[in-house]
């Protein structure tokens, strides 16, 4: 219970900081809007396949941009301060939860904007929201971890995309497959296995991320 309260206060702290400097939200939102508009202008007729693939590609770049800053803004002195009072597990869990909420919100906004400009390709909205939930959790875990890595490697932002992109591919491919199944373009007979696989990968990565972060944090 004590842990939960600490984690929640950390999440709240991140949220307050980001809300105070609203430019972060605004820039990401603008990024989404611009991407969708470019896609909308580039393709006259958006087919189901293009819709789904475009959605995920935009989402991946948006979430890289969103999560990129999670360890960036911390100066070394504030880091020292956090280090002296916090448990690394709380820090990483709070970051993952905060980024997860952020990415999930972004994915919903992206979906609404794309639907506004074109159409909604999905048969079952509930299932799509579930896919988004799993996928954005995976995105948040991988990108948070890579962002922590790149921070201890000297805050190199190219490093983040180089390391993050290949690692995200299994989660991304599974999500794309699941969303294709939801558009009735193909019959998916292994819906449950795919979902459980996605959850399994997420849990595995979360576990390792929590384990390794304490090592990175100590240094």
């Amino acid at each position: 219970m004590q842990d939960l309260i600490k984690i929640w206060s950390l999440v709240k702290k991140d949220l307050t900081v980001d809300l105070r400097e609203i430019y972060a939200f605004a820039s990401v939102f603008l990024f989404v809007l611009t991407c969708v508009f470019i896609v909308f202008k580039a393709f006259d007729q958006i087919s189901l396949q293009i819709w789904v693939v475009t959605y995920w590609i935009i989402l991946i770049f948006v979430s890289i941009n969103a999560v990129l800053k999670s360890f960036k803004d911390e100066s070394s002195s504030s880091r020292m301060y956090f280090y002296s009072i916090l448990n690394p597990l709380h820090v990483i869990v709070a970051k993952i939860i905060y980024n997860f909420i952020f990415v999930y919100t972004l994915s919903l906004i992206l979906w609404i904007i794309l639907v506004f400009f074109s159409f909604n390709p999905f048969e079952s909205i509930g299932q799509f929201l579930l896919i988004l939930l799993c996928a954005s959790f995976g995105f948040s875990v991988v990108f948070t971890f890579v962002s922590a890595l790149s921070q201890s490697g000297g805050n190199n932002s190219t490093l983040l995309s180089i390391l993050g992109m290949p690692l995200i591919i299994p989660i991304l491919l599974l999500s794309i497959k699941l969303s294709f199944a939801n558009t009735a373009m193909l019959d998916d007979t292994s819906l449950v296995t795919d979902f459980s696989l996605l959850v399994g990968i997420n849990l595995l990565l979360t576990g390792i991320c929590m384990l390794l972060f304490s090592i990175l944090w100590k240094a």
Binding site: V142, F145, L149, L163, L167, P170, L197, G200, I201, L204, L205, I208, C209, L212
Partner: peptide, 11 residues
């Protein structure tokens, strides 16, 4: 990174 990558490699 290599530990994390290996975990991602298994699936």
């Amino acid at each position: 990174y290599s530990l994390f990558a290996f975990a991602a490699l298994i699936p």
